[in-house]
Design a binder for these strands. Structure first.
Length: 92
DNA sequence: CGGTTGACTTTCC
DNA sequence: AGGAAAGCCAACC
């Protein structure tokens, strides 16, 4: 996840596959455990629809951070994964 | 040790 | 096309 370049986003499922995680939910659970103080770019992680799955103020913070990195949001607050979606480089 | 939960995804209706 | 249901697996109580 830390290898995700700025201005790009990745889905939970993609990270799970790249990180050999057991499932997309576990990725989200791990992020929940990290906390907002972690230096991991957790804000670049979105769900399969390109939407922010994180409710509350943290979600608003995430969107703001992504916009700061150049990620453009669609009218419904969704990110175009076809453009900003990050593909894991054969990370064994 | 077991039932519930969750920052998810996919399929079926 | 939009909502409900099921699948998934580790953490929590």
């Amino acid at each position: 996840m830390a290898r995700i370049p700025a201005g790009r986003v990745a889905t939970y499922g993609a990270i799970a596959a790249a990180a050999h995680a057991s499932g997309a939910r576990q990725v989200g659970y791990a992020l929940h455990g990290l906390g907002p103080h972690s230096k991991v770019p957790w804000h670049r992680v979105l769900n399969a629809r390109g939407l922010i799955s994180l409710p509350g103020a943290a979600g608003a913070l995430q969107r703001r951070r992504l916009e700061s990195e150049g990620v453009r949001f669609s009218g419904r607050g969704a990110v175009d994964l076809a453009r900003f979606g990050w593909v894991a480089p054969q990370s064994e």
